[in-house]
Design a protein around this nucleic acid. Structure first.
Length: 261
DNA sequence: ATGACAGGAGTATCCTGA
């Protein structure tokens, strides 16, 4: 069972690259972020033709998350618990039956939070508190759980080419990293760091200033696993070559292989 | 010396992103 996450920065602008990558990497489940379209505008047909069931939680212009799955969805739930008034489409949870039980997956797009301090940063920290509450609740189920997406968090200095350039940024400020650590310390495993301590594992390079050519990247797209999922972790990787394709997203896919049929 | 991002909305720029 291969599960991937990718912030595509507009699903409609990324269809060629997305289809090419799906045929190459062959993930069973994909968590997408920043689809930047409403549910009605989501390009379902070409993805269904590749064998995927589709769940979408979109909105006009910004944000938007989706799930692709070769296995059918048993349940789909849009939105993150803790604030019914939050209109931003950043969270989509699904339950999928697998051999011997269920798999619970969420595609999440954590707020950027810049500029900090300010309203946007306060919203980011509140959203992280809600995510922590969600994870705490779901962990009591003792299921294989995969929380995958664009966390907009640089967890440690080893996750940036130039960490000193990010010290005043909402992605790297101490409260941001502290809350991410609180989340992980509930008992989750950062899948990529479970398989590698390579300091060059980046998932995002800015479009500006030739950042990819200089490998001036950061690691902000993460896959966190519950103990029941982490016990089945076989491999994790980053498809950085996708950043070199025509009309790339500024993010690249991250994936895990779990020993689940 | 020049230009040095991308996407959406919408039609000129402005907002957002990280």
């Amino acid at each position: 069972m291969r599960i991937a996450t990718w912030n595509v920065n507009s699903i409609r602008q990324r269809m060629d690259g997305l289809q090419a990558w799906l045929e190459e990497r062959k993930p069973d489940i994909v968590c997408l972020q920043e689809i930047k379209c409403t549910d009605d505008a989501f390009p379902r047909e070409p993805l269904e033709a590749l064998g995927y069931n589709i769940a979408v939680h979109g909105q006009k212009t910004f944000n938007g998350v989706a799930l692709l799955s070769k296995l059918p969805f048993d349940e789909v739930a849009p939105g993150l618990m803790g604030d019914d008034g939050d209109a931003q489409a950043r969270f989509l949870e699904a339950v999928i039956s697998v051999r011997g039980g269920v798999l619970r997956v969420a595609s999440l797009y954590l707020p950027n939070g810049n500029p900090a301090p300010g309203d946007r940063y306060a919203y980011k920290l509140r959203w992280m508190d809600r995510l922590i509450a969600f994870a705490r609740a779901r962990l009591t189920l003792e299921e294989p759980l995969v929380l995958a997406g664009d966390y907009n968090v640089i967890p440690t200095p080893a996750d940036a080419k130039h960490p000193e350039a990010w010290i005043h940024d909402a992605l790297f400020l101490k409260p941001t990293r502290d809350k991410f650590r609180t989340l992980v310390n509930l008992g989750l495993v950062d899948a990529l760091r479970a398989v590698s301590d390579d300091p060059g594992l980046f998932t995002y390079w800015d479009y500006q200033g030739g950042a990819f050519a200089k490998d001036d990247g950061i690691r902000i797209d993460h896959i966190l696993l519950s103990p029941q999922a982490a016990d089945r972790l076989a491999h994790a990787g980053v498809d950085r070559h996708v950043r070199g394709w025509d009309k790339p997203s500024d993010h690249v896919p991250v994936y895990v292989d779990l020993d689940i049929r």
